[in-house]
């Protein structure tokens, strides 16, 4: 992290809290609120290859901008969503959270973190591990920064699983 990327401590605290909050929404299956964290063109992306450079030239495990992510979330509430019966329980463990200022266009902050997700459904426990990287945009006056998570929107959430290229059984909920 260069000096230019450093954040003041209020921003840093708010960004760390934002990613904790995001993980909690997933674990509590508050998917509508989770979707609400995304910018209108925000991308949720889980590459299928290690160090994948592009979401448009290579296949992905998940690759959905908000309008399509909304279909996935709508589907998660459908009574005949067979692939999520009984519902998937998840536990997100986020560590080594590193927030910094971003030099990307229309992105204010990046947060890099390590992620472990434990998933349980229908008698099967699965573990996933990897990195998660957020591109975030400030979407409220800075005075609101300390008041809650809603002052950032997700421009991109990328999850790089260490076994992204392994054969996977059903992935019914986002990481």
């Amino acid at each position: 992290m260069t000096r230019d990327n450093r954040l003041d401590s209020d921003d840093e605290r708010a960004l760390v809290r934002f990613v904790y909050h995001e993980a909690r929404l997933l674990d509590e299956r508050r998917f509508d609120e989770w979707l609400g964290l995304f910018a209108a063109d925000g991308l949720y992306w889980v590459p299928s290859q290690p160090a994948q450079a592009s979401s448009t030239e290579t296949l992905s495990l998940f690759c959905e901008r908000k309008p399509l992510l909304a279909v996935r979330i709508e589907r998660l509430a459908h009574p005949n969503l067979f692939s999520d019966q009984p519902v998937t329980r998840t536990h997100h463990q986020i560590g080594a959270v590193l927030p910094e200022r971003s030099s990307l266009a229309r992105v204010d902050f990046e947060v890099h973190a390590s992620l472990i997700v434990c998933e349980y459904r229908a008698g099967d426990m699965r573990w996933f591990a990897g990195r998660t990287d957020y591109h975030l945009r400030r979407c409220a006056p800075s005075s609101a920064l300390t008041d809650g998570p809603d002052c950032f929107e997700i421009v991109q959430k990328r999850v790089d699983l260490i076994n992204c290229d392994a054969p996977h059984r059903i992935l019914s909920v986002p990481f």
């Binding site: 889980v46 299928s48 296949l59 992905s60 495990l61 998940f62 690759c63 279909v71 996935r72 589907r75 969503l81 067979f82 692939s83 019966q85 054969p167 996977h168 059984r169 059903i170 992935l171 019914s172």
Partner: peptide
């Protein structure tokens, strides 16, 4: 393929189930 053949596919996941 992203839509039809990922393990997260909104189509294939229900077939696999």
């Amino acid at each position: 393929l992203n839509t039809a053949s990922s393990a997260s596919s909104m189509v294939a996941s229900d077939d696999l189930e």
